[in-house]
Structures are given as structure tokens and as C-alpha cells.
């Protein structure tokens, strides 16, 4: 048994430390994506909730595109397309402003591209959750804030948003679990996260079953830990826990 597991050892002879380093990068990717993706999601939900004739369809389009595209394709497009698009846009802007061309190449490294792509996807899925939550805050809440003399922005920040966050929590927790698994797709752009490290180890040692199983179990451990954490936070965050039972 110990012989079978020897390739998983830590140190120079085994791949255990590489796998753990990969898992840590996976977590960092997901944690870096979370605030950006949620900010996009809330913004897009507000665009879709509002009655602007321009913002609303734009928000709908954004949601449809990034919920419809395979995450793998989004990652490819962002990684290869975004630096070129940004560079060209910069050159275009310089030309339009009459500035001398700087020839600057916009750089987006693997981590940034991964975070950007995953945040675009998380933004689309969490906007669904936020929109549902915003719609289920009763209109009377807004009217009450209005009666207290709050401005629209104050009412949103102090009255609506806290309720939206509570209502959205279970859905957002699901989004987090999906995000954690989607990070594995970033391995295709050579970022040494968990899946990539398992790949390298499997090829180097010719023990694919062992290493892919180990990688899957590490993902499972992260999922289970997230689920435990969710159950701990949820009573405090969920609407039922926050309000006394009626």
C-alpha cells in the first residue's frame, strides 16, 4: 500500500507537495474571482432590474452570452483574445486622441486571464440569483424607506441590499461550488493549478489513475469543506434565521 502511494509523497521524489501547491492556487483563483464576479453579478442584476432602455437589454445580453458559452471556450477567448483586443483598443484610442503611438502591448498573465474569464461567468450566473432576490424584496420596503426620507441610494444600501444578500445567499453558495469546480478548466491555459499539476504528475510518473483520483478527492475535500462552512453561516444569513419565526 505504501509503495502504491509513494508517488504522492512530499519532497523532491514525490508529487504530493506539487498537488498541494496546485490546490492552494485553485483556492486563490476562486477567492480572487469571487468579489469581482459578485460585483459584476450585482451590477448586471441592477441593470436588468432597472427600466433603462439601453442598460436593461445590455444586461440581458451579457447574462445570456456568458451563461450560454461553455466555460472552456470563455477561458480560451479571454486568454488569447483579451490581450490582443486591449492592445488594439489602446492603439485605437491613442490614434483617436492624436497621441503618438506608444506601441504598448497590454499584458494579461494566466492568473489574470483565468480570474477575468471565471469572473465573467460567475457574474452572469450570480446576476440571476441577485435578480431573483431583488425581485422578492417587497415593494413596501422601498416605500417605507421613502417615508423615512431616505434617498434612493440610501434606501438601496441600507434597506434593500441587506435583504437581497440574505435572500441571495443559498444561490450564491451554489455559484461558489460551481466556481470551485470551474477553476479546473483554467489548466488548459497552463496555469499550474490542481488539475494541471495532476496532469503533469500523471504523465511524468505514468500513474494517471492515482493522480487524477487524488486530484478529484482534493476537489471533493474543498467542496465538502465549503458545504460545511455554508451550513455554519447560513442560519445567520438566511431570511429565516434573521427574522423571528412568525
Amino acid at each position: 500500500m505504501t509503495e502504491l502511494l509513494a508517488p504522492l509523497a512530499f519532497g523532491p521524489s514525490g508529487w504530493g507537495d506539487e498537488l498541494i501547491a496546485g490546490a492552494w492556487l485553485t483556492l486563490r483563483l476562486a477567492l480572487a474571482t469571487l468579489p469581482i464576479g459578485l460585483a459584476i453579478g450585482l451590477g448586471v442584476a441592477l441593470m436588468r432590474h432597472g427600466d433603462s432602455r439601453i442598460l436593461r437589454p445590455l444586461g440581458e445580453l451579457y447574462g445570456a452570452v456568458f451563461r450560454g458559452l461553455p466555460e472552456l471556450l470563455t477561458i480560451f477567448i479571454v486568454y488569447f483574445g483579451a490581450p490582443r483586443l486591449a492592445t488594439h483598443l489602446l492603439a485605437f484610442a491613442e490614434a483617436a486622441l492624436g497621441l503618438p503611438p506608444s506601441g504598448t502591448q497590454v499584458q494579461i498573465d494566466g492568473f489574470m486571464a483565468g480570474v477575468l474569464a471565471l469572473a465573467l461567468v460567475l457574474g452572469a450566473f450570480s446576476s440571476e440569483v441577485f435578480l431573483g432576490a431583488i425581485r422578492s424584496v417587497p415593494e413596501s420596503q422601498r416605500e417605507a424607506a421613502d417615508a423615512l426620507g431616505m434617498s434612493r441610494a440610501q434606501a438601496f444600501r441600507l434597506v434593500i441590499l441587506p435583504q437581497v444578500m440574505r435572500l441571495a445567499f443559498p444561490g450564491l453558495a451554489n455559484n461558489w461550488m460551481t466556481l470551485l469546480k470551474d477553476t479546473s478548466l483554467v489548466s488548459v491555459i497552463a496555469l499550474p493549478e490542481l488539475m494541471r499539476q495532476a496532469n503533469l504528475a500523471a504523465l511524468a510518473t505514468r500513474q494517471p489513475f492515482l493522480f487524477y483520483l487524488a486530484a478529484c478527492l482534493l476537489y471533493l475535500a474543498m467542496s465538502v469543506a465549503s458545504e460545511r462552512l455554508r451550513l455554519r453561516i447560513e442560519p445567520a444569513a438566511s431570511p429565516r434565521g434573521a427574522e423571528p419565526a412568525r
Partner: peptide, 10 residues
């Protein structure tokens, strides 16, 4: 279009 511009620029 931007690529053509950028090519000129570089």
C-alpha cells in the same frame, strides 16, 4: 481595424 492600426503603429 484596430490590428491594422496597431501594425502601422508598431
Amino acid at each position: 481595424a484596430a490590428a491594422a492600426l496597431a501594425a502601422l503603429a508598431s
